[in-house]
Design a protein around this nucleic acid. Structure first.
Lengths: 108, 108
DNA sequence: AAATAAGTTTCAAAATATAGAAACTTTGTT
DNA sequence: AACAAAGTTTCTATATTTTGAAACTTATTT
């Protein structure tokens, strides 16, 4: 899997600007387009929010820190199974929504 | 930065404005907890919404109908890559959101 | 009922993800 | 600078997904 380089902002920046200063709410919520690279960044963000090292998260998930590193950097196209294991370990609630726009219906 | 400012307006707001109010005929939206089986059902739902057979969707994605069948029935833990290919072929907008509840912070 | 279309399952092969371990690099601390 | 902690990369092995092809089952149509 190729890494897509769209990075151009720090997550901390983004959170402060668009979501609100850390610590103000009793929860943090993020919504993104589902993309491999964004998923990786979300894992990293959530881990840091929990004040965990990659090694600690690895222990919670049951894998080594190297694997966490790979997931955070989107080194490969993770399976849903893996994604869910990680977010569960982070006690993160993860939802997805699908929108079908009718205007696209003309597929031929 | 502007392009990545997904959170500056809520998605719901944007859709209401540019695509149509929820529940109107212009769009269909579904939100679920991210789970393998639900993903499979969503693929099926979206495909049927598009009036496509598994074979037709397979052609759009570039795989055989058997693979679509397996994905819809969650026969295995698909990779993000595959999921994205399918929803893209269906011209479906797919977002995910992650919620971190502070009360869970006390991991240790 | 017969024929066709749509969907499912099985088999085998190829591609990719996951895993542990260790070396390596970067970052932070004293 | 020296040291420790955190994160990354590489190597190798194993497990799983993806794939095509064909056989099979279930629905639909004539």
């Amino acid at each position: 899997m190729a890494k897509t380089a769209i990075k151009s902002y720090s997550l901390a920046e983004m959170k402060d600007k668009y979501i609100g200063k850390k610590g103000t709410a009793d929860r943090d919520e993020y919504e993104y387009e589902l993309r491999m690279d964004v998923l990786g960044r979300m894992i990293k963000t959530a881990r840091q929010e929990r004040n965990l090292t990659q090694e600690q998260l690895g222990q919670l998930v049951g894998v080594q820190k190297a694997q966490i590193s790979k997931l955070e950097s989107s080194a490969n196209s993770a399976t849903i199974d893996t994604i869910l294991k990680v977010f569960k370990a982070l006690k993160a609630d993860i939802h997805f929504n699908v929108t079908l726009e009718k205007k696209h219906l003309q597929l031929v």
